[in-house]
Design a protein around this nucleic acid. Structure first.
Lengths: 340, 340
DNA sequence: TTGAAAGCGCTACCAT
DNA sequence: ATGGTAGCGCTTTCAA
């Protein structure tokens, strides 16, 4: 049987309440007793029992807030599903969730959402937001007020944020490059379509992609790099224009959303089957493109896991006082038609 | 707050003990009261609280036995790691593990191991064994004696086995075919190396592979199919012989273990870079072949997950009486050099 | 500053 | 057949 708080109390010659207070620094314990108890706990390798912890926690239910974008695609719906699965598995320990979805990337609406969640009395927040100074400042402020924030899907530059749960964008770019190398396109003449030059994740994906190609000494050239605002229509427009201008393109790389638009332009240009498109994330649109054969493979980032782990990790921090790792990276997943 | 056993007792006008007995069919409750209580629990959507359950379960610790092969490669060590992770996360609910490793595929040693585990008083068994009549019979017997068995990694034909936790071998074969299609080998002239013609998993992998190629109308031909007993030396020997005999081979498919041997033969024949090898499972040997470039991609089956889920699922069945799904399939994972 | 005790949900044992 | 109760590990409140 594992060491319990009772064992420590007996060993220290004090009551269980005193041990509890000492181990959690709740005060009301003499410095001498506190240090002795902590040392004993260490020596005896005390690990609080989660069942007992959970049972006691039922008295003061805990809520975690989630700030998530509501996009046209279903990516974040998977994050929601993951978060709900975590909630389900922790419901017996008194966890509740509070969602706040935002429509745009407008920082004002994100700040408002953060404040609203904090105002509802949540114990902590999981946020998929944007890495801007005003957001970071608010996160730092919330953290100081005792409401820790976990960045989900989009990493925040240092701002006291508890942890980052998401993928390594650079690595996903490298993997896309690896796939291109496997495809054996003799001399890749690339067209890159990104969401925005200001999106860090997209830039990292492009960086990783090009780095890997350079490292492999692939005889490839980037003919142009377009922006589409993660919008399918815009993606269609700019890609069509570029393909007309650059008929030698034989491979496309879509770093953000908008793959469906790119696919439409490629199809229209009669390049289907001759110019593979490399895209990201398993959402219905990219899925369709794989089944159609326009996209040979997609590199995914496990949105379900991101929601699941973010909630779990934050809960464990709030309920058990565990320190989460600074970054929890979800494994990239390669999908082709056969495992979609 | 969720519905507790207390709420049901109050609603039914009986004591908590009676509700507990009724819901678990422990007897000592009048048929009338029992059915009334069960109906109430249903109506009120009673879900036992896992923390309470776990705490009470600490009084009578539960052990799960594991029967696993000890092979030359590290595949099953990952299964062990997964099982140990599950144990760790359930230790607070009173779970212990008992391992029994077997050296060979000899059914006698497996039967002996099963009996030994049962003799140690384990509450249930996770077994990666072989699908033979004598094994199935023993599994059925153990199940009747109240010791449920979960098949891990290798499925057992119907024998009362609680569940199967592992991959869909046919699907992994289809995925390997998908990768071959992506590689754009113009006219694949295949050499297939399998572990044994009697290993169901290997056969299914070959089936799935060929089915998918046929479905895609790939202009490919299978020049020969070799057996290597999952042994690298034997694999080297038979592959070398076959490559000498069939110089037109331009692609190899290794359905079981032995990829390192196949790789050595390919290297020696000067086919490195010209005849890709498709292989399974992320173990040091296949890893090395990917890094060397002999294997463009491997299809993996998440051994860690298999150990983790098998233990978790069996525990939930034993401790909470949950019925697990008949098959828990781990997702296949494609690995290339960039995400290894 | 410290101890004692109640209570979270559930099971098990002992009375009735 | 049923009720009452102790106890699993932990937190929290009240009393000293």
């Amino acid at each position: 049987m594992a060491v319990t708080i009772k064992d420590i109390a007996a060993a220290a010659g004090v009551s269980r309440g005193t041990v509890d207070r000492a181990l959690h620094g709740r005060g009301g314990v003499s410095a001498e007793a506190a240090s002795r108890i902590r040392r004993l706990a260490e020596e005896m390798q005390y690990q609080p029992n989660r069942a007992g912890l959970g049972l006691a926690a039922l008295k003061k239910p805990l809520r975690i807030g989630l700030l998530l974008p509501r996009l046209g695609n279903l990516f974040f719906e998977e994050v929601v599903r993951g978060a709900e699965a975590a909630q389900q598995s922790l419901a017996d320990f008194g966890l509740g969730l509070l969602f706040r979805r935002v429509q745009s990337y407008d920082p004002q609406s994100h700040l408002q959402a953060l404040d609203w969640l904090a105002g509802q009395g949540v114990g902590g927040i999981c946020a998929a937001t944007v890495d801007l100074p005003e957001i970071r400042e608010r996160v730092a402020c919330l953290t100081r007020q005792g409401v820790p924030v976990v960045a989900v899907n989009t990493e925040l530059s240092p701002c006291g944020c508890l942890s980052y749960v998401g993928c390594d964008y650079r690595q996903t770019g490298r993997i896309a490059a690896g796939l291109l190398l496997l495809l054996a396109v003799p001399e890749p003449r690339l067209l890159i379509v990104t969401g925005s030059r200001h999106a860090k994740g997209h830039n990292e994906r492009i960086q990783g992609f090009l780095d890997r190609l350079a490292q492999a000494r692939a005889p490839c050239q980037v003919l142009d790099q377009l922006e589409c605002q993660d919008d399918d229509r815009e993606a269609y427009r700019v890609t069509r224009e570029a393909l007309a201008r650059l008929p030698q393109v034989n491979c496309l790389y879509v770093a953000g959303a908008g793959a469906a638009g790119v696919g439409a332009a490629v199809r229209e240009a009669g390049l289907a089957g001759r110019a593979p498109i490399l895209a990201f994330d398993d959402v219905p649109t990219t899925r369709g493109l794989v089944q159609e054969g326009l996209v040979p493979a997609i590199v995914c980032q496990q949105p379900f896991q991101q929601g699941y782990q973010a909630v779990k990790l934050l809960f464990r921090c709030l309920a058990n006082g565990e320190r989460p790792p600074a970054r929890f990276l979800t494994d990239p997943v390669i999908k082709i038609a056969e495992n979609l």
